[in-house]
Design a protein around this nucleic acid. Structure first.
Length: 274
DNA sequence: AGGCGTTCCTGGGGGC
DNA sequence: TGCCCCCAGGAACGCC
């Protein structure tokens, strides 16, 4: 399930092949993959379809041109494979062909992934919160944001309009590292724990990026697995001893998601009488 | 406002 | 072995 580090890993991987090259064609192999445009629009709208840059915003891979951007969202099971050979797979949903004979094969078993065409980042920015690794994302800002909401902390961190890029894995990891139970209510978490959470979110994301992300089931880049899987502390560890206190890690359902938690060392901050 | 259920999808696992 | 059912989950959407 690609989250910020996995998307960043994909960007780092495809960037050198694409920047400066002209996009020849986007071929939708599966009908619904192009979310807000048609194959022909690429020729009509993209006047000089030379790739200016490839970068990440939230969980989107942004391929930018002079006056437009193409945004790719991998959702659950999307993968990009870059190759100058024919790529065979049952689950190709789209192919982006470049002038240098390289193509990006969008492979997506569950078909939730989509490709978008926009003039610029405005639409995406309007629906997304700050980048957790961004310069402006200070612990004071985060404290203010979290305390202004009275909301389940896990649901809040998963909400892309609140903060960008986090998903189920890195939320569980960050909350565990910070000793905050995912059932907590955001504005009741003490300041020192919010600061700790801020720092652990950034630390976890950076370490994951340095290890090319996490491979649970589906994520890889051109078949290469992310190594962060080896560094996970709670995610997927139901029944195993907590690395901090030796209590058993439990799997619960919180905010509609499978959630891994140590009930002993993750403090639950909730209203006493409710 | 925020929580919750539903939808989109398919493969894989459990139960029998 | 086989078949059915349920589950996984990011994000959008509708409902209360």
């Amino acid at each position: 399930m690609p989250e910020l580090p996995e998307v960043q890993t994909v960007v780092n991987h495809i960037r050198p092949t694409c920047v400066g090259k002209r996009l020849k064609r986007i071929q939708p192999v599966w009908g619904k993959v192009l979310h807000n445009f048609k194959e022909a629009d690429v020729n009509l709208i993209l006047d000089r379809p030379k790739v200016v840059d490839v970068y990440r915003r939230a969980k989107f891979i942004i391929i930018s041109f002079k006056n437009h951007i193409i945004a790719i969202h991998l959702r659950m099971t999307g993968k990009l494979n870059v190759t100058d050979e024919h790529f065979r797979s049952k689950h190709i949903t789209a192919v982006l062909e470049f002038e240098n004979d390289y193509s990006i094969y969008f492979e997506d078993v569950r078909k939730f992934g989509r490709i978008y065409l926009y003039d610029d980042l405005k639409v995406i920015d309007s629906k997304h919160g700050p980048e957790p690794l961004g310069k402006n994302f200070t612990n004071q800002l985060f404290k203010k944001m979290v305390s202004q909401k009275r909301r389940n902390i896990k649901a809040l961190l998963l909400d892309q309009t609140f903060i960008s890029g986090l998903g189920n894995i890195y939320v569980d990891e960050s909350l565990w590292k910070s000793g905050i139970h995912p059932s907590s209510t955001s504005n009741l978490v003490p300041e020192n724990k919010i600061f700790s959470l801020h720092s652990n979110i950034r630390l976890t994301l950076r370490e994951a990026i340095n290890n090319n992300g996490t491979t649970i089931i589906d994520f890889n880049v051109n078949g290469e697995s992310g190594r962060y899987t080896n560094y996970l502390c709670v995610y997927g560890k139901a029944g195993e001893p907590c690395l901090k206190c030796n209590d058993r890690i439990e799997k619960l359902k919180i905010a509609g998601r499978g959630t891994y938690v140590c009930n002993k060392c993750q403090m639950k901050y909730v209203e006493k009488y409710s």
